[in-house]
């Protein structure tokens, strides 16, 4: 009866694996958070998460991806909470029943980064949209995230607003995170659209400067959404609720607005 022996062995193995997998999970509760590269790269989460983890004896596992992918992870129930920045997509996510309980967390602003030499001559421009159409006109190198992230979605929106379809040798769509795009723009001597937070985090490592910024800014607002537990019963509802409550609590807000990179405030909160 070699088959049954084999079956028993396989069952035993499976049991062992299950036990092994369960042991660390039992020890401490894990909350899975999908967020954007801009939040992760800025370093904000490093100050924001530890107090929550300590108070609730849990760990927050951060998956830092683009907004598009973060929402996909939410749709498939791979994470408990998403923290992203693309208002229209977030609202659709909730409307489609994938998420519940959306809360505004914070915002920062978008800027155009470029080389100091500024070959497109856009420095001092008051409007990001106007600067983009000048870059397109002069066919200066522009690196696009091209990854369906919140920044990418905002960029596409801006191109649409000025009626430009960005194609050509000058427009490089790289499908990568903000930090990598800043590195590439620096290497190629090109421009890119970035959130201020990531730029400040990378400022020391790059020669790029903020060429164009708007006052008041092109807002980049972040929302936190719980993934709908009705669709995915295995999700950690209680912990996720507590996490959202924490994010809008006064102590977390103090940490967020008090967060500085190179002495500059990155994130603001709508009171």
């Amino acid at each position: 009866m070699p088959i049954s022996v084999k079956n028993i062995t396989i069952q035993a193995l499976c049991c062992c694996l299950l036990v092994l997998a369960a042991v660390p999970a039992l020890a401490i509760e894990h909350l899975r958070l999908a967020t954007t590269t801009s939040t992760e790269n800025s370093g904000l989460l490093d100050v924001l998460l530890p107090p929550f983890e300590e108070a609730n004896n849990c760990r927050v596992d951060v998956l830092s991806v683009g907004t598009g992918k973060a929402l996909k992870l939410g749709e498939s129930g791979d994470v408990d909470v998403v923290l992203v920045h693309a208002r229209s997509k977030e609202e659709k996510f909730v409307a489609d029943g994938y998420g519940v309980d959306r809360r505004n967390i914070m915002y920062n602003d978008f800027v155009i980064l470029g080389p100091i030499a500024d070959p497109a001559g856009i420095a001092g421009s008051k409007k990001i949209a106007a600067a983009l159409s000048r870059i397109a006109e002069k066919q200066e190198i522009f690196i696009s995230r091209g990854d369906n992230s919140g920044t990418h979605i905002r960029e596409m929106q801006l191109w649409q607003d000025i009626g430009v379809i960005p194609v050509g040798d000058w427009y490089l769509e790289v499908g990568r995170g903000m930090g990598e795009v800043i590195t590439m723009a620096n290497e190629r001597g090109g421009y890119t659209l970035s959130d201020r937070g990531t730029y400040l985090a990378y400022q020391a490592k790059t020669d790029l400067v903020v060429v164009v910024e708007e006052i008041p800014g092109q807002f980049n607002s972040y929302g936190a959404i719980r993934v709908n537990p009705d669709r995915h019963p295995h999700l950690k509802v209680e912990l996720a609720k507590r996490f959202l409550d924490y994010l809008v609590s006064s102590s977390a807000r103090k940490l967020t607005t008090g967060f500085r990179v190179n002495g500059q405030q990155l994130f603001y909160i709508d009171e």
Binding site: G66, K69, K72, D147, N148, L172, E173, V174, G175
Partner: peptide
């Protein structure tokens, strides 16, 4: 991984998947 320029099968697989 520049689209249409240096995007190869492997970089596309690695990065496009993270776009969903």
């Amino acid at each position: 991984n520049i689209r249409g320029f240096t995007r190869t099968m492997t970089t596309a697989i690695a990065l496009e998947t993270s776009k969903g």
